[in-house]
Design a protein around this nucleic acid. Sequence first.
DNA 1: TTAAAATTAGTACATTTGTTCTAAAATTAA
DNA 2: TTAATTTTAGAACAAATGTACTAATTTTAA
Lengths: 207, 207
Amino acid sequence: MTTKDKILNCALQLYNEQGPNKITSRHIATELGMSPGNLHYHFKHTDDIIIQLFNQLADSFDELISELEQSKVDLNYLMNFTNKSFDLVYTYRFIFLSFVELGRRIPAIQQFYQEINERRLHEFKTIFKNFQKKKIFRQDIPSHVLDLLVNQIFIVGDFWPSNNDLTLKLEQVAAKKYYSKIFLNMFYPYFEPSIQVQYQSQLGFSE
Amino acid sequence: MTTKDKILNCALQLYNEQGPNKITSRHIATELGMSPGNLHYHFKHTDDIIIQLFNQLADSFDELISELEQSKVDLNYLMNFTNKSFDLVYTYRFIFLSFVELGRRIPAIQQFYQEINERRLHEFKTIFKNFQKKKIFRQDIPSHVLDLLVNQIFIVGDFWPSNNDLTLKLEQVAAKKYYSKIFLNMFYPYFEPSIQVQYQSQLGFSE
DNA sequence: TTAAAATTAGTACATTTGTTCTAAAATTAA
DNA sequence: TTAATTTTAGAACAAATGTACTAATTTTAA
């Protein structure tokens, strides 16, 4: 592993634990047993570390959305996508926990958020329309209601780590289980009755 | 207006505009044409300003929840509560935009969030059960689904300003209109058909 | 009016932080 | 091997920040 990667990994861990405001370049250097001079040889600006980490996240997210194939999207596909998204969000949770501040501090972050958000809003609006065609979603839902649903799910999808940090503070596995249930449940009342049954049996609501 | 209140008002404005990390006690003092020594005569620690502002928010929120009278809650009541909540959140938006960081920095904030969250989760679970009794909500929704809905609405209710800041950056009136629509729409698929009609006509979905 | 109390300005200090600079050490290439 | 390049440590600096201190000024109370 290159020194750059060591720095990035260490920074990700420290940022996730304590937030990007508490952690300085000196902290990261010390944690790695490295001089501050050396760290700044690899990353001229401290924010460059954050930018690089954000780019990792952005690339992964981008890939995830690119994989979406409208025609194949069904309930399983939706659950699968949710699963992968939640893992990604958890891995880079410090970004989501400080999204507003990082967006203000680093314009590229805000810009990319807007782009990827536009894109996934559009993708999911299409998916939901297909859901209606395929009778996964109820037929009697007006299309503007579906459009608003898309906004809801992304707010929950982006800010569940913040809610977790302020309340239960669940760690990885438990958090993912808890919040993906909350997330997927947003779709429940839109499902056709038969899908509702299928959904409930798959999620094991008896627990 | 006392000097303390002037400081609080000015701080609120600056925090809302630029976030609590960019704004220092010196900034606030300068904005008020006041010496830093004087500001620290009124607030020994800079964080005391934030704590005081948070207490203002907490008191208002507490009052709002206390006013809830389960028996009287109907669709209009719900819309009214949403309206007041959104105003409050907007007024103190810097807290919601930096909730996680402030919670970590100031334990009292995190603690109060947990308390008020527990309380409103409970209140709303009861409200939704009443909604079912009163046939405002559909009868065929399992109770655990309703419980999860409660979690969803509070995540959206707390983090819509963050979403707004990262995307459209709507100001007060427009933001409230846009996000309260998204918020109230979360209830839509749970409404009985007759209530759905009533809801749509009240919100004027033609716009 | 006068003494006490409250308020204010201005300065000063310690700490933290990002970053730069220099020189040494390690690595690579010829 | 030797020269060039890369990497590293460590010191140094400037700016920012929270906050304490002092002395002046203003306000209040007797």
